[in-house]
Simulated assay, not measured.
Amino acid sequence: MTSPNPSHARISIIGAGPGGLTCARVLQQHGITVTVHDRDAGPDARNQGGTLDLHADDGQIALRAAGLLDEFFALARPEGQEMRQMDPTGTIVAHEMPTADDTFKPEIDRGQLRDLLLNSLAPGTVHWGRALERVSGPAEGPRQLHFADGTTVETDLVIGADGAFSRVRPAVSAATPDYGGVSFLEAWFNDVDNRHPEIAELVGQGSAHVADGERGMFAQRNGGGHIRVYLVQRVPVDWIRASGLTPEDTDGIRSLLLERYADWSPRLRKVITDNDGPYIDRPIFALPVPHTWEHNPTVTLLGDAAHLMPPLGVGVNLAMLDGSDLALALADAATVNDAIHTYEKAMSPRATEMAQMLVGGAAMLLSSEIPEFGEGGPKV
């Protein structure tokens, strides 16, 4: 099969996260038809997660290509760039405050970013409730998408933007994510200025990091008076059940954490005792570095599907830049095959370079030294 011109191709993006939606938006900006398939039942099916910092040298470049940079700045929180480093007594040992005009990496809630991208698309672009099971068909195309509801869709290009455990990835790569030995336990705090004023003061307008070499804590202020805290531990992937608990046993997990963080100040231990609702276990996985695959003229990957790394503030930025670059390559190329070549030639080296920098990076959040990522900390 001859590779089609992108303007005549059936293009299918799997995954309505920031990377996939950025790709769809930029394609539509250039008059190219695209369909996005997402496993969620609808845009409000689940909480979209915490806050993100979008960087001037990647995420903001993608938003500019999407024609959404001004809208982003209207929603973003520049004050969220504040960063506090503390010791286990709660004493601030380093403090970074942004200037009033600092727009290098302002924060935005993941849900707000997703809504911004979704609302920019043509009606009907995203097909909800479409859980992909596998991709079949010859490498030269056309491809078939097989969904959990028993339906199939024929397409000329499959773009895997479906995250860590991508169902598209096996069409080009046998690689699977590995657990790196570090897990984040997420806790939520709502209406913090009124209900949790001590924690609100502790975190400030941005983020706060504490570690003692064995245990860590990273707290981030979100929009709407929310704070998310990530308790960082080096533990087996099944540490909760191995402790005789279940993920739903909030009181039991809290008691275990209070033992593990017993040497920390009472002020810091409030992040363990005062959280609203259950904890969420988030073991940290990553793809092998480098993760590359043999070129395929009908399938490619972006974001975590292509280069899953520890969640240290770069993932969404790279995913959005991937999506923008792929869309622009499709807009400029004579064939889909040519566009994939152009995109992967740019994406793979930069992803490999960043992934190599972040190998074992999640474990550095256990160090009492100030992390030197310069990316704003965990973004889960």
Results as ranks from 00 to 15, higher is better:
2 T>L: 14
5 N>K: 11
6 P>Q: 09
7 S>F: 13
9 A>Q: 07
10 R>E: 13
17 G>V: 03
35 T>V: 06
39 R>M: 14
40 D>R: 11
42 G>W: 11
43 P>Q: 13
44 D>E: 15
45 A>N: 12
45 A>K: 12
47 N>S: 08
48 Q>T: 02
56 A>T: 13
59 G>F: 12
60 Q>E: 11
64 R>P: 03
75 L>R: 15
81 Q>M: 14
83 M>P: 00
84 R>A: 02
90 G>Q: 05
90 G>T: 05
94 A>F: 10
96 E>I: 12
97 M>I: 15
98 P>W: 11
102 D>A: 11
102 D>G: 01
106 P>D: 06
109 D>G: 05
113 L>C: 04
115 D>T: 13
131 A>P: 00
134 R>G: 00
142 P>H: 01
152 T>E: 15
153 V>C: 08
156 D>T: 10
157 L>N: 08
158 V>H: 09
158 V>W: 09
162 D>P: 06
163 G>N: 07
164 A>N: 02
166 S>P: 05
172 V>T: 03
172 V>Y: 04
173 S>D: 06
176 T>A: 13
186 E>A: 13
188 W>R: 14
189 F>G: 04
192 V>Q: 02
199 I>K: 09
206 G>L: 11
208 A>P: 03
208 A>K: 06
210 V>Q: 08
212 D>A: 08
213 G>M: 09
214 E>P: 00
214 E>L: 11
226 H>V: 11
227 I>H: 04
229 V>N: 04
230 Y>H: 09
236 P>I: 01
236 P>S: 15
239 W>H: 15
241 R>L: 06
242 A>K: 14
244 G>Y: 13
253 I>K: 03
255 S>R: 15
260 R>V: 05
270 K>D: 09
272 I>F: 10
273 T>Q: 10
281 D>T: 02
282 R>Q: 05
287 L>W: 01
289 V>E: 04
290 P>F: 06
295 H>Q: 14
296 N>T: 13
296 N>I: 07
302 L>Y: 08
304 D>G: 07
304 D>W: 02
312 L>T: 02
312 L>R: 03
315 G>A: 10
316 V>I: 09
316 V>Y: 00
318 L>C: 08
325 D>C: 03
327 A>N: 02
331 A>L: 12
334 A>Y: 05
337 N>L: 10
338 D>M: 12
342 T>Y: 01
345 K>L: 10
354 M>P: 00
356 Q>Y: 03
357 M>Y: 11
358 L>A: 06
358 L>V: 06
363 A>F: 04
368 S>F: 06
371 P>F: 05
380 V>Y: 12
